[in-house]
Amino acid sequence: MKSLVESAPEFSTEATPVFPTESPILQVDNLTKVYTLGGNPLTVLRGITLSVKVGDFVALMGPSGSGKSTLLNILGCLDRPTSGSYYLGSEDVSIMSDDQLSDIRCRYLGFIFQQYNLLPQYTVVENIEVPLIYQGVKIDEKTKSRCESLASLVGLGDRLDHRPMQLSGGQQQRVAIARSLANAPSLILADEPTGNLDSSTSIEIMSLLRILNSMGKTIVMVTHENDIAAWSKRILRMRDGQIESDTPNVPIPIPAGLRLIDPNVLINIVGEIGEI
């Protein structure tokens, strides 16, 4: 067998049952967002219309203040649009209550942040468990071994009981990626996932995201670095709250010789935990 990174793009993509392959996983229509700052309305998003298909890997780019983070927050159900509709799968998320949004977040979405945002009091495994807890899943040996497998998947199988403080930035971000996979999400939202990392670690993380994408995960990623956007399949550029350009991209290949984990291990893990 070839090394994992070379063989990665050939992984079969299994459709998630909730969202059929050909239909868009998210559909945004004429979305606006207006903040009120000191009594003055501040329009951040001016009519965004966007559709993302299952299995896509979208990079959202743009200068600061262009509204890309706001859009990602709305896509991540952390914020609600002022007007316009947002369908996630077949559900209109823009009119949901706070509790319903929480439910959507913990069932269908995975988050990766620039700041990693791990819980410092928890170990690696416990951090990965958090989304499952809020799903109301009973934590038992099965879920525990699933979380351990996810940690192995991102190459941290030997650091299960470490706390975030004991890990490097790249390792913390890998824990965050494993955590974003815990609830087998349909959509992964990444907010500058490599923003705090050096270039070689960035390559590791992006390779990992590429592998996940090739395994069928839809990813929407905010970045302002062209090098990072180059890993995606589609690049959206934003300016002043509007989409300036929307171009398909041929993702750069995962560098040969970069061995994240043993492919046999990966196959075993995927076979073991089924859907990630």
Binding site: D99, R105, C106, F111, N117, L118, P120, P131, Y134
Partner: peptide
């Protein structure tokens, strides 16, 4: 505060 934000993002409801 940050921990609360993380938990909310990961699906914690207000009552959680």
């Amino acid at each position: 505060t940050r921990e609360i934000g993380i938990r909310r993002a990961l699906g914690a409801k207000q009552r959680d």
